[in-house]
Amino acid sequence: MLVAHALWAQAEIPLDQRQSGSVLLSPSNLALQNDPGLHPASLWLLEGEALWKTPPSNNAPSCASCHGDAQTSMRDVATRYPRPRGAQLQNLEGQINQCRVQRQHQPAWPWESAPLLSVTSWVAHQAKGKAIDDFASPHLKADLAAGRDLFFQRMGQINLSCAQCHDQRWGQKLAGVVIPQAHPTGYPLYRLEWQGVGSLQRRLRNCMNAVRAEPYALGSLELTRLELYLMWRARGMPLEAPALRP
């Protein structure tokens, strides 16, 4: 028993064995992901680029008025989110909305709305290929620990934790599908099942529904902490947003 317990405690994936979900893609889906002319998320990037450059209706500055060309100013920003902004832990979507409310004096875009996903994809895309931050800041310690607790927390009627599938049983099959390691390297991403682009938090809520737990709300502190832990878990891996998944 003691031995088993010790194994469980160390069940995290060794750094050199980590792999992006892209390695599990079928050849045809991989071709879709890797060709911008075929990748449907390219349409969200076009929309995001237009929104970045266009001033909002109240003549407030556009994103580009302050940040300039996203290709230079945003080239590694997405690797560092979620991070604390003021007193609050903020993911990339939250940061974009905070800018929109405080600097552009516009109502925040709803979570998972098309404009928010488009701008987030556009910003995240600039960091494609860049290594994810190691989130070593002491300010993140408490949130990281809370996110880690959530990852190992059993939940729902099926009573599973994230770790039981994605740390301990990755590579095995769940209902005919290979269980991925769950590294959030490609978000926001185009999921064929969604027929559209969605955020990491939407994906996390999917998983919580699947274990018949009541999912946390989009934008909640819990989901953002879990997002932070997952990003830390994928530290050093290259971002590949927007990815494509089945």
Binding site: P40, L43, W44, E47
Partner: peptide, 9 residues
């Protein structure tokens, strides 16, 4: 020739 369009279908 490839033509992609954003539409919910």
């Amino acid at each position: 020739v490839r033509a992609l369009i954003q539409h919910p279908m």
